[in-house]
Design a protein around this nucleic acid. Structure first.
Lengths: 118, 118
DNA sequence: GTAGTTTTTTAGAATAATTCTAATTCCAAT
DNA sequence: ATTGGAATTAGAATTATTCTAAAAAACTAC
């Protein structure tokens, strides 16, 4: 954990709105004015590969980052652009409802829902 | 439906291996040697926006395209790079198992599973 | 503490999928 | 045939991300 990685991680935890690397860069600059965007990407890469942060991709938009490690999906509000976490109801194992091929081992499951709030 | 769009659509239906735009470009060139990559993107955009083809994104890899319109997910085999369709078991309504916010209207649901075959 | 080694950060260049631009071609309807 | 509108094309532009090389920082053993 370097100083930069810690600040990036804190930025992510302090406002869980699924910011992009650019947004994280801007928020991190308030704390570390000389930080570079490459460092933001490096830090995020380190945090993601150590499984303390999840990278969230919706369509081909810039990646967003999320410190929620529990298995969950994302609701992308088309009207506001917001992305919020969607938890599964208790004791739900998604894989049970899927027609997976013989011998399939799931390493990662990604659920993205797009829509709006009525 | 122009000639190019028809060939692109036929290419997609004749081999349902979720090709990228580049792969579709190469396959289309066999039929239309003077076609351009921009046209492939244009045609795919037209087909996707008219809801006859689905665009499939896994991570930040190049988009893949799929003529299967039934609601389904995708299994991404990390060992082979293959992407295959995953159907839901009969009468399963995923939304029932999710903690959606009040008033959420689902317009699109995207399920990507990464793993391998044992 | 200091010399030596490794890791991280940084700025800027490079990359690659996709989109845009402007010119040309195609086609349908007059 | 001519015109008008849309589609196609080649190539330039865009943009999120990755790479490169150099400088800075962090560690390690002495």
């Amino acid at each position: 954990m370097t100083k930069q990685r810690k600040v990036v991680y804190d930025v992510l935890r302090s406002k869980r709105d699924h910011p992009t690397a650019q947004m994280i860069f801007e928020r991190t600059q308030k704390e570390l004015p000389t930080v570079s965007l490459a460092t933001i990407y490096n830090c995020l890469e380190a945090l993601v590969s150590h499984d303390v942060v999840k990278q969230v991709n919706v369509d081909r938009e810039p990646s967003r980052y999320c410190p929620n490690l529990a298995e969950h999906g994302h609701f992308h509000n088309k009207q506001t652009g917001d992305v919020i976490d969607i938890n599964f109801k208790p004791d739900v194992n998604l894989a049970e409802f899927l027609d997976l091929p013989e011998g399939a081992v799931i390493e990662d499951l990604e659920l993205n829902i797009k829509g709006f709030l009525k």
